[in-house]
Structures are given as C-alpha cells and as structure tokens.
Design a protein around this nucleic acid. Structure first.
Length: 296
DNA sequence: GCGACAG
DNA sequence: ATCTTGTCGC
C-alpha cells in the first residue's frame, strides 16, 4: 500500500500560518509507535567505516544507475564491481545532511543535500543534490527550508530506505512536526531525528557530564502546543564521552515517523560506532561537505 | 513586553 | 549552518 503523502510537501511559498497549519496536519498523520518492527540489532554498525577511503571521488560523472527516476543530482556507488556486501537482506538505513552554498554573487544560496545508504554496517550508495533556497532559517519551520532539498537527494538515491536518519528534530518540536517527522510522513518511511541542540521540551535529568551510553527522556513543556506537558517526546543521549576531558554534549533523539521514542534512541545507539554522530549521519555530513567543495 | 528557539 | 589554525588530550 502506498501511504506516502506528497500532498503535504513543505512548500516554502506558504505563509507562516499555513506552514504551521500544515505541521499540525503532519503531526496528525504521523505515528510515534513501532508499527514497523525495526530491530536495532539488524541495523547496527559495529565498526566505523573509514571516512577517508569511504568517500566517493571528488567529481561525479554521469551515472549509469538504474532504478531511480533520474534526477537532478549526482550519485556514486562505492561498491560497484567489488562484491563484498554482507547481508543483502538487511534493512537499508539512510543518513541525510546538508551543507550550504552562500554569498555566491548573483547565484542564490543553495543547499547541498547528501544521502548515504548503509546496509549491514557498510555504505552501499551515495547521492547528493543541489537545490536553491528560497526562505531563511526560522526555528520551528526548518522543514520548509530544507525539506525539498532533502527530498531531491532521496530522489537521487536508487536504494529504498527502510529507515531515515535526519539531522534535526522529529517529535521534539513545537507542533510535534519537526524535519524528521515531515520527511518521514511524506515518504511514509520510518524516520528518526538526531539534533545536536534541544529545540524545546525538558530533559528529565540534567545532561551535564554524563557517561557514554547515558540517556534520559525529554518531555513536552509549555512550548509544545500539541502535547500534554510531561509527554515523553524524545531523549537526550550521550553517544560519546572522553575518559578525562569532559566536554561532549549529548544528542537529542526523537521519533520522526513510525518509531517510538524508545526505539528511536535504541536505533541511534546501534548506529553509533565510536563517534558522537551515528555513522549514517557522519557520512552524510562528510559527503555534503565534499559535494559542496566540488561545486563550481 | 521578554525570553527561547533544530539547521 | 558558516567564517577558520592551532591546539589540548587520548
């Protein structure tokens, strides 16, 4: 069945009031439960792949990738020709991140979106797309600035995502409709939001100086207008910590769509392999930067 | 009116 | 997010 909702696209030309109304529709269409039995153990990344040798060539030429409806984007397959895939039936996890092109004279600012697909701990595909930006960043309305660019990168990806890891909030949002939730509902794909800063809500416990692996629920506060105060909407998660130097801040993980707050953190924990960011996000971040550098 | 606010 | 070298610590 096709439950994707392309009609709920985060159109940047909407008025602020219309954007907020659309987010309430997104939240209503979203589900913050585990309908999709995604087992964290099935997507776990045990050993962090090397960022150095994992990235695609600086400049991608025409791609002979079949399967995706073509796109305005460049992609690359690092394993082409080298058949060392492990479990071809394991779930595909896609990390997404953006880099930005600004102050380019006449050219408008643009977002360089990267999507990197992982399966059974290995990178199986890279894709990216450059999209002009029409509106500025406004707290709470991030999906209207980065949504279309993200969808363009996903369109350039041949792999079919079983889980999307977005950079930003999901349910931890004023109307429970953050970037991860918006993208997840549009594609009807399980999604999780991973943010480096807390948008709203209140952690159950102080987050300072916590050991690696520590987590605490983030509950709705007065800023979350669509949920009863106290509702668990995500978690603060200490994904990495140095033995001596105590400086790493926790990640703020929340459900995007079709995943519970508990499973969302479990999935992110399983996707972390020694670095602060989960591997799919770490690779998407690096690929977006590389694609940006190569922009002419 | 003031504060708070993902990327 | 972005502008950016060195530098402290494991």
């Amino acid at each position: 069945m096709d439950r994707a909702r392309p009609d709920l696209r985060p159109d940047p030309s909407l008025s602020r009031a219309e954007m907020e109304d659309l987010q309430r529709e997104i939240a209503a269409a979203a589900t913050f439960d585990d309908d999709h039995a995604l087992d964290p153990a099935a997507v776990a990344v045990d050993e962090a792949p090397s960022l150095a040798d994992g990235l695609p060539p600086a400049r991608d030429g025409p791609q002979e990738r079949l399967g995706t409806g073509s796109g305005a984007g460049d992609d690359h397959d690092p394993e082409a020709g080298a058949g060392d895939d492990h479990d071809p039936d394991a779930p595909v996890v896609v990390g997404i991140d953006q880099a930005f092109l600004t102050d380019r004279g006449d050219a408008p600012d643009a977002a360089v979106s990267a999507a990197v697909a992982f399966r059974d701990g290995d990178v199986i595909e890279y894709a990216s797309a450059t999209t002009p930006l029409s509106i500025p960043y406004v707290p709470g309305l991030l999906a209207f600035r980065e949504g279309d660019p993200i969808l363009a990168a996903l369109d350039a990806l041949a792999a079919d995502p079983d889980l999307l890891i977005c950079d930003g909030s999901g349910r931890i949002h004023f109307r429970e409709a953050g970037l991860a939730t918006h993208v997840g509902v549009l594609r009807d794909a399980p999604s999780v939001g991973v943010a480096k800063n807390l948008l709203c809500g209140e952690p159950d416990e102080p987050t300072e100086e916590r050991p690696e692996g520590w987590r605490t629920p983030v509950r709705a506060d007065g800023a979350v207008t669509t949920a009863e105060p106290g509702t668990a909407i995500g978690h603060a998660f200490q994904s990495r910590q140095y033995p001596t130097s105590k400086r790493v801040n926790p990640l703020y993980v929340s459900p995007g769509h079709r995943v519970s707050a508990e499973t969302a953190v479990d999935l992110v924990a399983a996707l972390c392999a020694g670095y602060k960011l989960p591997e799919p996000t770490r690779f998407a971040d690096a690929h977006a930067d590389a694609a940006k550098r190569d922009a002419d």
